[in-house]
Design a protein around this nucleic acid. Structure first.
Lengths: 197, 197, 197, 197
DNA sequence: CATGAATGAGCTTTCATTCAT
DNA sequence: CATGAATGAAAGCTCATTCAT
């Protein structure tokens, strides 16, 4: 209809995912009912089952999508031998941007709501998290190898860095004197010095 | 009859709080039923109500106690004019130790389960969090003032530091080559350099 | 699809109300469980909530409907200057007929179960009771004014008359020699003489 | 202790009955918990069982006592051949006085809470009610026989009279211009004329 | 006489889900 | 694609009652 050529396949799926994302974050997965979601979407609970097989599938779809949005753009870094400093900055930038991005939603869902997934689906998400970690480890190891960073356990370092980013969702709100770009630079500098000799 | 002392007071309350703490962490507040808690305690659900008026009161008691365990030992730092570096190290040490401490439990509960409290009770917890923040800000400001740290927004800095600590619960487990003491030192050095000019 | 009319609307609501009315009367509101009601209706308790938001709403709907059945048919009497004797007889007739009517149910519910309503809903019922009283007062006052009844406090008189009627539900059952019509005449004569000079 | 010579046997039983009477009336039997009663009495629920075997026994004791207070003073009227008018007045007087008496409590309990008694105990109360009725019938029949009252069904007449009295508890409160004595006279006159030819 | 702890039974209500339409 | 009706399961909580102390 808009003529953009983009097929609008799954418009309702999108709607459900977006509304659910907000609700899951605001109220928690268990505390959000299918009725809550349906109300937000403007139809009745039964209709959700025309698009998702279960509430868990909604959660899974949201988590998977967001995790992929973080991981896919940085996959190419894993085996790339470029400047580790720039790579670290890029990783931080992507992660912060998705975390605080327009959709502003899931965030800590990864930390707390994974338990609501079936084992099989949890594995899918955890595999994506492993991808993220592997990429980060690679960057840090190369930085250490090149003498740019102090010798240290790269796993611990990455966990600290990721933790700073993940929880920005809880306390950060952009201001004139501190935009998201500023925050990215702040975290990058903070991490950089933390990693330095 | 008199003179036996009031020892053992609240033994069951303690039991309930400890078992609940673990369950809330493992399964989440909403996903933990009073039956779960009672089973863990070795009695029937109805009996819990002889010690707590509601499930929410259990959560509140746990959160309050843990928050106080973190805040009380560092309260004296707020107006003390000593070495900010040592103070920062002390704050990190206490926070990490409680977070990973023997009771090992709530952790991210602060991040995610506050919504399950009544407004009034949420305020009690948030006030404690404010106390923590005020203390941390004071330390950082004095460090900046004395030229020990780079000029920067101390609120953002403290949030980053606290985030690193809080989420250790998710990924850290002590090993031979990395004890809790080692982790404290690691985080302290990481933060210290991040704060430096 | 359109044009079939909206007949049959609220069939289940009706069923629930009718079954509840009987149960509330026989066992009392508190002593009647949603399971009792559901059993009587032929489905499971959870289904009741598709038609009523709560047990209290069922009670409210019943009380309101019955009160309206009594009050609405006599509303026109309030400002009508006709024969007070005939009006009194009409009021008694309607009140007795609803009280002992086919649906046979609530009756004393008004006397005892109002406390189970929220303040707001209790007011709705009490307003209807006020309507009833106002109408009755008007009739009695006109009768006194015209010299048909002895000068007396019309409020007390109406309370006595209404009390006789309300409690018929407790002891009256129609017999060959005493039908409902006979009872109406009996009460009317009794009241009439009680009111006379 | 006061030297009146009245043994204070069962002081706690009395206390429990009095507090329960008020609560049963205000909230209903089912809606009143043993905890409510104990609170009102100033001790813990478990202690009630040192004086009453069950909640039902409390209700039974209350109902029985009040019914006896009404019936016993009028028993002698059943076979007494005195003036039926004066006897009717006496019956009304006693009944109203107990109903509105200082203890002001049970009233409609008879109408609605009998169902909460065991069959056996319900029979005890109903037997007392039968006593009351028999006495009333006797008075009315003698009045009819002597030509003082119109020929009518004395059972119906007594029910109407008793209904007027019982429900005074719901609407009457003594005023300067209408004391309990006035009310008794009012009802007596009302009934008297209702019974007259 | 009084109580704290414990429990079985039951209650109202919520909810994810199904299914015929 | 959408819904109203229906349900099994379970939840938090209340409560009368028991019993050892």
């Amino acid at each position: 209809m808009a003529g953009t050529g983009v097929r609008e396949n799954g418009k309702q799926r999108r709607l459900i995912m977006e509304k659910s994302q907000v609700l899951f974050w605001e109220k928690g997965y268990a505390e959000t009912s299918m009725k809550d979601i349906a109300n937000e979407c403007g139809f009745r609970p039964a209709n959700i089952y025309n698009f998702f097989a279960s509430k868990e599938e909604i959660l899974f779809s949201i988590l998977k999508e967001e995790m992929e949005e973080i991981v896919n753009p940085i996959r190419f870094l894993e085996y790339e031998e470029n400047d580790p400093l720039q790579q670290l900055r890029f990783l931080i930038e992507i992660h912060v941007k998705i975390t605080l991005g327009e959709k502003r939603a899931s965030k800590l869902l990864f930390d707390t709501e994974l338990r609501n997934l079936s084992a099989e689906r949890r594995k899918v998400i955890l595999d994506l998290r492993d991808d993220y970690n592997r990429i980060g480890y690679a960057i840090l190891k190369r930085g250490i190898h090149k003498g740019l960073f102090k010798a240290m356990d790269e796993k611990i370092a990455l966990n600290l860095i990721a933790s700073m980013i993940v929880r920005t969702r809880l306390w950060f709100s952009p201001e004139d004197w501190m935009t998201i770009e500023d925050l990215i630079e702040f975290i990058f500098q903070f991490a950089l010095k933390g990693l330095s000799r």
